[in-house]
Design a protein around this nucleic acid. Structure first.
Length: 274
DNA sequence: AAAACACCCTGCCTGC
DNA sequence: TGCAGGCAGGGTGTTT
């Protein structure tokens, strides 16, 4: 599932290939993507066609492709099964390919997404997109312990729901939240405001799991591949996610799985007490 | 106002 | 062997 480390890995893989390339055309499958919304091809073409890509980076889980026009660019959200690759134009397109940017020099930037939870949109400028403007601080660059403490203290939500809310902290999904809470020894159902005093440890844990995920090039459970089509290696480093019934690597107790808000939650009942 | 929940989608896996 | 049903969890819109 593309969370911050997976999007970062894709951005790092795409950046050297895309930088300096000119977009010549944009194609769409015609199928709607996220929330049954059609892709606004006209807007994509207006921003991208004839322009040169200057920068490829990430904000939270959003991939940003900036063009030469000041601040303008394309934003891609990978949803659950989205894939972004640069491939030769003559190479066969993967199933569920929905948006294709033709590049000068013969390559194509292709967005494929089996479940169509992802989306692609234009921003003029990117910063004006409401979804980006609403994002909370990036835990690797814009967050410190006092700020996290204040954010936690202001929320009545369970700490797991707090961390999944992109308006609070940007980039965490179900996998890395489970891992971070385990490392910080915080039970997922703990009210956020009661976890505020442990903000320093929680921030350390968040950074450790995200940096580990990036170092291992992302977590591949089933669908995720990087910009080169390679799986990530982080799944073997997971300590609680998907390990229900297995022994805790720290204390040996059996990892539990429960469902909160319709989402699977994994934790060690001994290391993470309420 | 914030929190809880339903919903979109497809592929894979399980159980009958 | 075939098929129904459950599950995966991103974000958003609606309800509580």
């Amino acid at each position: 599932m593309p969370e911050l480390p997976e999007v970062e890995t894709i951005a790092r893989g795409l950046a050297p290939v895309l930088r300096g390339r000119r977009v010549e055309a944009v194609w769409g499958s015609g199928l709607p993507l996220h929330l049954n919304r059609p892709v606004d091809l006209r807007a994509l073409r207006a921003v991208a066609v004839g322009r040169t890509i200057r920068r490829v980076h990430r904000r939270g889980k959003y991939l940003l492709i900036e063009v030469e026009e000041a601040g303008a660019g394309i934003v891609v959200h990978l949803g659950m099964t989205g894939r972004l690759r640069v491939q030769p134009a003559e190479a066969p397109r993967a199933p569920h390919t929905h948006v294709v940017f033709t590049l000068d020099g013969g390559g194509e930037l292709r967005f494929a997404d089996a479940r169509r939870f992802g989306w692609v949109a234009a921003g003029t400028p990117l910063a004006a997109l409401a979804v980006l403007a609403a994002l909370g601080p990036d835990p690797l660059s814009d967050l410190d312990a006092p700020r996290l403490r204040d954010l936690l203290a202001a929320s009545r939500a369970p700490v797991k729901a707090f961390l999944l809310d992109q308006r609070r902290v940007a980039g965490l999904g179900n996998i890395y939240v489970a891992e971070a809470l385990f490392r910080a020894r915080i039970h997922p159902a703990t009210p956020a405001r009661r976890a505020a005093s442990r903000a320093p440890a929680l921030l350390d844990a968040i950074r450790a799991v995200l940096e580990g995920g990036i170092a291992r090039r992302g977590t591949t459970l089933r669908d995720y591949v990087d910009a080169d089509g390679n799986s990530g290696d982080n799944a073997r480093a997971l300590l609680v996610y998907g390990r229900q019934g297995g022994p805790c690597r720290r204390c040996g107790a059996l990892i539990r799985r429960r469902v909160d808000g319709g989402r699977a939650t994994f934790f060690c009942p001994k290391c993470q007490r309420r």
